[in-house]
Nucleic acid binder design. Sequence first.
DNA 1: CTGAAAGCGCTTACAG
DNA 2: CTGAAAGCGCTTACAG
Lengths: 334, 334
Amino acid sequence: MATIRDVAKLAGVSVATISRYLNKTGYVNIDTELKIKKAIETLNYEPSSVARGLAGKQTKTIALILPDISNPFFPELARAVEDVASTYGYTVIFCNSDDQGAKERTYIELLKKKYIDGIIFASNTLNKHDAEQINVNGIPIVCLDRAPDNHICSVVRSKNREGARLAVEHLLESGCRKIAHIYGPRDLITAQERMKGYEDAVKSLPWYSPSLMVPGNFRIDGGMQATETLLHGHPDIDGIFAGNDLMAIGTLKALHRMQIRVPDQVKVCGFDGIQMAEIMEPELTTVAQPIYEMGAIVSRLLIKKIEGSLDTNEIYELDVTLVPRKSTQKEAQL
Amino acid sequence: MATIRDVAKLAGVSVATISRYLNKTGYVNIDTELKIKKAIETLNYEPSSVARGLAGKQTKTIALILPDISNPFFPELARAVEDVASTYGYTVIFCNSDDQGAKERTYIELLKKKYIDGIIFASNTLNKHDAEQINVNGIPIVCLDRAPDNHICSVVRSKNREGARLAVEHLLESGCRKIAHIYGPRDLITAQERMKGYEDAVKSLPWYSPSLMVPGNFRIDGGMQATETLLHGHPDIDGIFAGNDLMAIGTLKALHRMQIRVPDQVKVCGFDGIQMAEIMEPELTTVAQPIYEMGAIVSRLLIKKIEGSLDTNEIYELDVTLVPRKSTQKEAQL
DNA sequence: CTGAAAGCGCTTACAG
DNA sequence: CTGAAAGCGCTTACAG
C-alpha cells in the first residue's frame, strides 16, 4: 500500500503538505491541491489510521461496554451506537462485561492501550473509583442509566420512576384492584426507580402491602418464579407490573402454566419495550424506553465530548411511552 | 503514561531488551529480567497497542461484519465471537452491513486502514471480487454460511439441508399429511439449502405441489403474509415448515389471528433455535443451529489463521438438532 | 544475552 | 502557502 511519502513524491510536494490537505488543517494552494488529489487517486492512497493514531492520538474508535449483547435489550442499543458512530467516521469495539467489575476493569486497561477515543458505558458496576481512573486518563466517557456518583460523566437514561407510575396507573384504569410488583436487582438504579414508581402509585391505596413486591432478576426465569411466589401468597392479585419485559414474559409463561387467563383474570405490564413483548400471546403491554434513541443520543454525546464541543456533564432523562396491548385489555373491550 | 523508553532507563537496559522481554522473543538474562519486571511495575507501564500496531503490523483486533445485530440470530453469535476473541487477547470491532455490498466495502476499506488482523464475515453479499480484494491485502478472513465461490476463505455453517429434512420428517411423524414451506430470500444459501431439504423430504409424496412453497423474507411479517397466502390457496394444509424461526413466529401469529389452532389443526416448525422460539405460546418446535458454537469456532479459526497455524481453507459443517416443542405435538400426547 | 539504529506512517510545531 | 525535522512508542534485523 502507498504511504504519504509516495504521494508526496508523486505530487512533488512535502509530506507535511499532504497531511495538511488530508486533515484540512492550514491552507493549501489550489494548484498543489489538484496535484495532490491526482497523486492520491493514481496511487489509490489510504492513510493509515494506526499511524495517525500514534502521531495524533486520535484513533476514531470508541468502545461500547455492555453487560451482555445476548440480553434482548442491548442489540437495538448497540445498533444505534454503531449507526451514529459510523456516520461520524468512528468504529466501535464492543465488550461484554457480564456486569462484573473485574471484566470491566480489564477491558478498560486494554482500551487505554489502544488509544480509544471514548467509552460508552451501559454496564452497571462501574464505581466511582473506576470512573475516576478513566477520567484521569482523559478518556471521555458517557454512561447509560447509572451515574457514577459525582458528575464525572454525562448520563442518558429514561424516566424510570415516572414510567413505572404510568404502568401501574394503566393497570388501575384497566380495572385492576390489587397490583403486585416484581422488581429487578436492587443494586441497579433502574430497578430501584421503577420500584419507587410503583410505590408512588399504590402506597396510599387500601390494599397496599409490602409483600406485594417480590424480587426477580430481570430475567425470564426470575419472572416465572416471582409470579408463582406472588400468586401463592396473594391468590387475589389481578394485576402484575414486572420491572422489565423479560420478567413480564416469565410472568405470562407462569400464569399460562397455572392456567390463569391473561388479561381476564390477571393483567400484566412490563417495562422496556423490547421486540419480544410484541410476539407474546397475549401481546404484552409495556412501558417502552426509546432504546434506539438512547443509543443514538449517548453516541452523539460521546462524540461531541471527544471532539471538544461539549465539556459539561449532564443527565438526560428521556420520555417513556406506555404501549397498551392485549395483556392489559379491559374485559369490556374483549 | 510511561513508555518503553522510561522502563529501559529505569531498568538500565536497552529498549530492545524490554521489547524482547515483553514479547518473549529472544533470550533475556534472568537478572535483567528481574530488573525489567520491577521497572515495569514501579512505572505501571503498559505497552501501547497502537505503537505496536504500527511497528509490528499486529493490532490484536478483529472485525465482525454481520447484517444486523438487531436480528435475534446474531447477538448470541456476536457474544461467542467476543468471548473467544477476548480470551485470546483480541478485541472485536462490530459492523452492521444490512447485507448491502456498498456498506461492506466501505467497512472493509476502513478496517484495512486500521490494520485489523482479520475479519469474520457473517454477511451474505460478499462476492468473489470483494473477497479477493481482501485477500490481496493479506487479511485473513473466515465466513459464516456463505462460501465466496473459490476457496478463498474457511467457512463455518450448519447442515441446513439435512436440518430441513429433519424438520419435515418430524412433521410427518407428528401426523401431518400436507406440509407447506415458507422459504427465505433466494439469494441466501441458507434459504436455498433448507428449501432443498424440504423438497428432498416431500417431493415423492402424492400431495406434493410446488405451490406449497411460498416466499418469505426471513422476518416475522414475511412469515405472517406467507401463511395467509398459503392457507388461502391450500386450506387443507396441516403442517408448515418455515425457513427460519422469525418466519415461524409470524406463522404462529397469523394462525392465531385466523383462529386456527396450533398444533391441533396445523403444526409449525421453524429453523435456527433462537431464544424467541421458546417464549412463544405454543412453544415453537425448531431445528436448532449451534449458534454460540458457530461463533466460537469461526473465531478460533480466524485466530489460528492470523497466528499462522492454519493455512488451508475448509468448510466446517456443524450438526443441527431438532428441538420438539408444543407447536408440533401429536394429538395423542395432548 | 544485549545494544544501536532504522523504520513503521503519520502529525505538528517551527521556520521561511 | 510550504518544507525540514522531530516525535508518537514500539519492533526488528544486524552486530557484537
